[in-house]
């Protein structure tokens, strides 16, 4: 049984209506807390697992570590990765003497273990992470791209080799530059000492 409230108590409860109005009124004049995309962007998304991207070699950042083993292509459940291995350089048969072909077995030149095409169709990607898991050289990592918005399906077919080159070009210069900078400092110090 609910305890019956007195009239005073019932009228007193009307004060909560005013409190409510004060709360929403305050909210109305306070600044907005949503991030107004695309005019504002967030920068605390380093742990976000976005679409995959290639990892560059430490000494050649615009070349991926990928060895074209095709494990990611075969293990992808949606079949959205396409990797094309670089073709081997053409055999130079013009210099061979006619007799050589019968006696020696020439080995065909080996194909370099680097991809010429690395396409991700993000339209069908289910973000399962299998490709990153099975890659033997850890050439696949997740990007932090949260702003994937486009106008057509083609916008989501990513050419990851291009993407790697762009990122490598935009990245800060590697350790070589640091060595140069630290080498430059004593030189500058010497010059200053000379000037004094």
């Amino acid at each position: 049984m609910r305890k019956e409230k007195t009239l005073c108590q019932k009228v007193g409860r009307l004060w909560s209506l005013m409190v409510g109005l004060k709360v929403t009124g305050k909210n109305f004049v306070q600044p907005q807390i949503t991030v107004h995309y695309p005019r504002q962007t967030v920068d605390n998304i380093s742990t976000f697992k976005g679409h995959i991207q290639l990892v560059g070699k430490p000494k050649e950042p615009s070349v991926p570590k990928c060895i074209c083993c095709m494990l990611c292509v075969t293990s992808c459940p949606s079949g959205c990765i396409k990797v094309v291995k670089t073709k081997p350089p053409k055999e130079d048969t013009s210099k061979d003497a006619p007799g050589d072909l019968q006696t020696e077995k020439k080995e065909p030149p080996k194909a370099p273990k680097t991809p010429s095409k690395w396409i991700l169709d993000f339209n069908t990607c289910s973000l399962c992470g299998t490709c990153a898991e099975v890659c033997p050289v850890k050439s696949i990592e997740y990007s932090c791209d949260v702003y994937s918005a486009g106008f057509s399906r083609q916008d989501f077919v990513y050419d990851l080799l291009d993407d790697l080159k762009v990122r490598a070009a935009a990245a800060p210069a590697p350790k070589k530059a640091e060595k140069k900078a630290s080498a430059a400092e004593p030189a500058v110090a010497k010059e200053e000492a000379k000037a004094e």
């Binding site: 929403t24 909210n27 109305f28 306070q30 600044p31 907005q32 807390i33 949503t34 107004h36």
Partner: peptide
């Protein structure tokens, strides 16, 4: 717009 501002978001923009 008013609903948006009460909820501290911009509303239609």
């Amino acid at each position: 717009k008013v609903a948006g501002h009460f909820q501290r978001r911009p509303g239609p923009f």
